[in-house]
Amino acid sequence: MAKQTLTRKASDNKYYHKDFHIALNFGIEYLKEKFGKEAVKEYLVQFADAYYSPLRKELKEKGLIAIKEHYEKIYKIEDAKFDMSFSPEELIIYLFASPAVMHIKSNGHRVSTLFRETVLTVNKTICRNTNYDVEMIDYNEKNGGYQLRFHRREN
């Protein structure tokens, strides 16, 4: 048997490892089982506070267009089917099926009952200390699709 060698540069491939959705689902489930439901939310707040701080800054400076542009980019990467209704006062996102949930399920894994918090808690945290808030109008447990409404906070 001959020796085999394979060399690849980062630019040779697209960065898109869908199995990371499965790993995140396992992480959520692990926290729930070991530390309880509140720990899942606490972790997601901590993560979102840290990672999405530039997006929050943009939301403060530019308004809801920042959220719109962020999710347009994410959904394009994930090849998601979605629709948006946008005005400077309100952004409604319709995600018809979550690529994350569909990938987890298609690989035979059970989706954590708290997986929806990766949407609601994360977006609530992004909106914290801004003039905007978000509510989840609908969530489809079967495919992870959702309807999210971002809006200006009432004083």
Partner: peptide, 22 residues
Amino acid sequence: MISCTEFIPAYSELFKYIEQKE
């Protein structure tokens, strides 16, 4: 939705969170 392209920072923060908890 957290994209799979955003998983690595989520993973790193998860390690930090678990270490803080225990």
